[in-house]
Nucleic acid binder design. Structure first.
Length: 568
DNA sequence: TTTTTGCATGCTGGC
DNA sequence: CCAGCATGCAAAAAG
């Protein structure tokens, strides 16, 4: 087992022993080469200026989002310093899962009536044009954002590497010149009008997969590793300090990761992008602060593997145990700039079926969410709670969105099945046509393979669809010039925008409900609108006679956005 | 005998 | 097809 040494690092609390300061956990350091605990010591003062400072100075930091351009921000360069060094945005592997799902879903909804993989232009669709911009920026632009090589030997890890001598000796200066940089977009913010702007604080809690911070390598991180962190969590991490928290990546723990071996396999691209470069298999000790403020030193190393490398963090068991993590939970890695300190957070997979067996969700409405803990703050972070909207058809025989979706879910040959809209997996539903987020997948990720021992389920997918709708809300906002017509549904006033961008046979109506926290559904029989409990799942076919009150929640309806699909 | 370690194997998803 | 990665497994080390 890994050695555990306590070295003087000052002011670090420790839960494995009762003392609160003056020592430091050093784990995973038993190394034949001697690059282990015995070599771990306090990192010296910064030897190299941090590139991140430069980046931050260029507005590249992600700690604070103030822009309100919506999803476009995600996918477009954000370089306020147009006179700065040459930047190109690189989106090599695709969109973040959320953006991918969201924009793709919307595009499928709105722009792909024929199931085309391309986004068709639509001159009578301003929103479409916006989305098309997004798509084209993604589809065309192999946007590579590379910061021109800065001078100097910047090292953002100077406070994370436990042994700076080894680092400097074995690792060349970061290949900053080749740093591929991913823009750090703002999370999608609803621009749904004044009624929602009053809830800006809530919006900041939207959990989105953020395109990761600038990395060193050229490898684009897979969206599943993109950090999902809310603005609120960022603020919790940074606290009142001037530090900027840069979400780096996250990883769902596999059974192996969470096992007793104490080896956390790191995604190669993440390791190479955000952790210090290592040239020797034994790697180097890496100092990481966990959510409780404790500092751990893990051995960051790699194994040769098929002419490649397999990066691992060794000695994570005590840390994982202290966080009470298990397979399916997610660990997150962030960097605190300008110190360059690595921060390790976690998010419990409360919506994991496997985890639920022992940790049923305590969400009062049964909605499944995830909880991220940073800096010792562990609390439920409601993901768009407090609002529900309507996702129902227009009156008459109009096909509800859910209907449309469910049909597609069950239509293998449909032109808008979930596979086509780039959900991670095919979405075939049985029984109640639940939205994907509410139905456990037989095979959600590669973690759930043929091997029964693999326990993981993907807690991200559910979130992704939710985010899809969050982004949908952002995308479906009416054109600025659109003037709403006021309609009354029951006693509630809706601003209904009926400047229908026509996509094939569908028209889109976006209505903004003002000040409601209710869910309404239209009876398929009598066409009358009924107020339903927020937590009720509304199936595609719903009549007043249906008793739905004890169904699980349907949290796709959020922010009071009323998305109406109408068949022309 | 148990645990740790280093590598191998094979599945999976992306290209 | 191939890279990535979860996990298996055997050898080495430790108890």
């Amino acid at each position: 087992m890994s050695q555990l040494e306590l070295l003087d690092s000052g002011g670090v609390s420790c839960i494995n022993c009762t003392r609160n300061s003056g020592h430091q956990h050093v784990v995973g350091t038993k190394k034949p080469t001697g690059s282990g605990a015995s070599k771990v010591k306090n990192v010296g003062e910064q030897l190299c200026p941090s590139l991140d400072n430069q980046l931050n100075a260029r507005g590249m930091q992600v700690g604070h989002y103030t822009d309100s351009d919506g999803l476009r921000w995600w996918l477009k360069p954000h370089n306020p310093d147009t006179n700065g060094p040459s930047l190109e945005i690189k989106i090599e592997e695709g969109l973040p899962s959320t953006a991918e799902l969201g924009s793709t879903l919307i595009s499928q909804f709105l722009c792909k009536p024929n199931g085309s993989s391309r986004v068709a232009k639509s001159d009578n669709c301003p929103a479409d044009m916006e989305m098309q911009d997004i798509y084209e920026s993604v589809a065309h632009a192999n946007l590579s954002m590379t910061l021109a090589a800065p001078s100097g030997n910047s090292n953002p890890f100077n406070s994370a590497i436990a042994d700076e001598r080894e680092q400097c000796k074995t690792s060349p200066p970061l290949l900053l010149g080749s740093r591929s940089r991913h823009l750090l977009p703002k999370p999608p913010r609803s621009s749904l009008g004044s009624s929602l702007e009053t809830n800006a604080g809530m919006v900041s809690q939207i959990r989105v997969a953020r395109p990761p911070a600038e990395g060193r390598g050229r490898n684009q991180l897979l969206p599943r590793y993109w950090p999902r962190i809310t603005d609120q969590e960022l603020q919790q991490i940074s606290g009142d300090s001037n530090s900027t928290i840069v979400p780096l990546f996250e990883k769902m723990l596999s059974a192996s990761d969470a096992g007793r071996i104490g080896r956390l396999v790191l995604p190669k691209a993440c390791a190479e992008a955000y952790f210090p470069p290592i040239s020797q298999p034994e790697g180097l000790p890496l100092r990481i602060q966990d959510v409780k403020g404790k500092e751990w030193v893990f051995q960051f190393r790699f194994w040769p593997n098929n002419n490649s490398r397999m990066y691992v963090l060794e000695g994570v068991t005590p840390c994982i145990q202290s966080m009470q993590l298990q397979a399916g939970d997610t660990v997150t890695f962030s960097r605190m700039d300008p110190e360059g300190k690595l921060i390790m957070g976690f998010r419990k997979a409360t919506n994991s079926a496997a985890v639920q067996e022992s940790h049923p969700s305590n969400m009062p409405n049964g909605s499944h969410s995830s909880e991220t803990s940073y800096s010792g703050v562990y609390e439920n972070l409601p993901i768009l709670s407090g609002y529900s909207g309507l996702l129902q058809s227009q009156k008459g025989n109009s096909e509800s969105p859910l209907n449309a979706l469910s049909k597609k879910w069950n239509s293998a040959g449909g032109d808008m099945n979930w596979h086509n809209i780039e959900m991670p997996q095919k979405r075939t539903r049985e029984g109640l046509l639940l939205p994907p987020m509410l139905v456990p997948e037989k095979k959600k990720t590669r973690n759930i393979g043929s091997k029964s021992k693999r326990l993981l389920i993907d807690s991200q997918d559910a979130l992704e669809l939710k985010l899809t709708w969050e982004e949908a809300q952002d995308l479906l906002r009416p054109p600025p010039a659109a003037k709403p017509s006021i309609v009354m549904i029951e006693d509630h006033v809706f601003e209904e925008y009926e400047e229908p961008p026509v996509f094939g046979k569908r028209s889109i109506f976006v209505a903004r409900a003002t000040g409601i926290n209710e869910q309404w559904a239209q009876c398929d029989n009598c066409s009358k609108w009924r107020k339903l409990p927020v937590d009720v799942l509304v199936p595609p076919k719903w009549t007043c006679a249906d008793n739905l009150w004890d169904q699980s929640s349907f949290s796709m309806l959020l922010l009071g956005v009323h998305v109406l699909l109408q068949t022309n």
